[in-house]
Nucleic acid binder design. Sequence first.
DNA 1: CAAGTTACTTCCCTTTGGAAAGTGAGTAGC
DNA 2: GCTACTCACTTTCCAAAGGGAAGTAACTTG
Lengths: 122, 122
Amino acid sequence: MSKGPAKQSVDCQCEAFRLALEVLGRPWTALILSLLQEGPRRFGEIAESAAGLGDKVLSGRLKDLEARGLLQRSVLPGPPVRVSYELTSKGRAFGEVARAVERWGHELVAPNVPRRSGVRAR
Amino acid sequence: MSKGPAKQSVDCQCEAFRLALEVLGRPWTALILSLLQEGPRRFGEIAESAAGLGDKVLSGRLKDLEARGLLQRSVLPGPPVRVSYELTSKGRAFGEVARAVERWGHELVAPNVPRRSGVRAR
DNA sequence: CAAGTTACTTCCCTTTGGAAAGTGAGTAGC
DNA sequence: GCTACTCACTTTCCAAAGGGAAGTAACTTG
């Protein structure tokens, strides 16, 4: 009774939404932002967490995300030099999106709920 | 801003999340799903709502989304034959994600909030 | 039968992604 | 001093995907 199907609209045309999709609408970006939610990670750590993600693309994504102010790169001293990536406030704000995506993902895996049979043709 | 004690985590490894990113992690998909939230739209309507999206890619995305059970294609009779695309329950469930993305988008456009100056090097 | 409408499909070219190998900085070992 | 080793990239090569324009198919109207 609290809330029925309150249909909030999404402004697909607004600059903010377009910008967000520009970031999300390519492989690996959302995954990188999501796993950095748990805390700072080094280049190698991200690489091994994301199976299938190659060094080149990872490097490119990190550069892009840093340029957009979503994460901050810092070089740690020490014999083998290490680089750590940490989310900024903008990057951390992505957590909300990540959780929404995860919840939606579960619906995706669930079996289809067929409604009415519609006209199907080609 | 104090640190929230309950930092909800996102399981980046789970199948559901991966599947969701497989759908979202490419251009235009999220935009298409978002503007279909408002109701069924025809091919041409989607095309003109999404500036920059070409016919070929739109056609491909719609096929893919239909195959994944996110939307339903139906051919409307009439002299010029028209095709309408309508979201299924899985597709409508994306609305939550879309709204989260839109909210996050506004943070993205906002000016950076520089925290403490960290080690910057290259 | 030519023109118009709608929904695609094809073609061509550029951009991006994926996999693997190479580079450079800095230390440790011989 | 030379080599080996680690880590973080960068480069190279090739396949896949995207962008734009033009072509196709079905069907009606003039």
